[in-house]
Design a protein around this nucleic acid. Sequence first.
DNA 1: GTTAAGATCTGCT
DNA 2: GCAGATCTTAACG
Length: 188
Amino acid sequence: MLGNLLIRQIRGELLVGKIVETEAYLASDDAAAHNAAGRTKRNHILFGEPGRSYVYQLRHHHLLNVVTEGEYRPSCVLLRAAEPMRGVEYMRLLRGPHISADTQLMSGPGKLCKAMEIDLALYGIDLTSATSPLTIAQGEGRDFQIEVTTRIGITKAVDKPLRFLIKDNAFVSHPKVRRPRNISTANL
DNA sequence: GTTAAGATCTGCT
DNA sequence: GCAGATCTTAACG
């Protein structure tokens, strides 16, 4: 997925971003995955064909995943960051006036969705079809190294090496470390 | 530079 | 009720 292009067509605008950071969520043995507790109204698309979008809402934001395996194996890849390649001005409009650097337009899963106006209206669409309003197309060469780390922002299965990013790319996310919650002395 | 709070949808206890 | 695959703003050192 890294290096491929995320292409959004909206109101006559063409927005393109190169995918620079992803996370994998596995079909089994992954407590952090949404399918860990089974099939729900929210996640049912994971259980169908690969290549569809799995969009869901977290607090005030939307997050975009690509369904990967199909065949009743509910796995997906979360798109966490992208490098703007085309339509930067429109992305700035969608993101708001507070963004100073292009590196921050899509440097996080919620930001990426906002910069491309991706929300639940795009749930379940076919990302492999060129006629979809949101498409993933093959990028150019693989002239980069891939860095692997643990995943960001989760509280379960925190040690799995399932975050992937293009090494030395300036457009990846820079998440603040989530502070550990104080544990009551009664639990020590 | 860091930290805390707030916005507010879905699904589990 | 509450926690969660988040992000921004405001307050502080």
